[in-house]
Amino acid sequence: MRSVKPELILACVAGALVLAGCAAGGGGMAAKTASGIPLGMTGPHEVAALPDRPKFGRPISEADIAPWNIDIRTPDGLGLPPGRGSVAEGKTVYDTKCIACHGADAKGGAMFGTMVGGIGSFTTNARVLTPGSMYPYAPIIFDYVRRAMPMDRPQSLSANEVYAVTAYLLNLNGLVPAGAVMDAASLTAVKMPNRDGFLIDDRPDSAATRCMSNCN
């Protein structure tokens, strides 16, 4: 029905789909990726685009995309820029640009709750979610602060400032010493307590039945 380039389809779909369930009413399948991520029902779909494939994209170089290319692949730190920052420098950045919303020592402020503590709390019913307790990889702090903070002026901090405030938050959470300096290598090397805290989606996880009478 659709003319597609065979090598692309092979790369993207056929090699990776694992059929995991029964055929659905619409002819689709419940599927998982090769790495076990549930996809829900997949096609074929009732509405398809016309088979023609005009090309309107404009070639662009990675160099020209660089100003937007801000993501960090957090498990191995790919994308972390050059630069460095210390815990002490981070406190200065924090007290200038972060404290108004997050409070002194990152313990919570006018708009947001604490960013300190909570390590070990997930086995209790009083889970405290902070960068220290929750993030499996330390470069997540760098990625998030750089893309979204400070909220009134995101993407305005220099790489050194982001490294510094990241070092400060890690130190407040007891994960690096007061003299620590963070750069691409040292930040990636920080071992986070929730590193192994995640399970890939394993739903459906309920087995409800369709009782019609004398239920409960």
Binding site: I37, L39, N194, G197, F198, L199, I200, D201
Partner: peptide, 14 residues
């Protein structure tokens, strides 16, 4: 959040 302090990730299907 899951029992035992774990977190279910990539739970994207509704």
């Amino acid at each position: 959040p899951m029992p035992g302090g774990k977190w279910r990730q990539f739970s994207m299907v509704m």
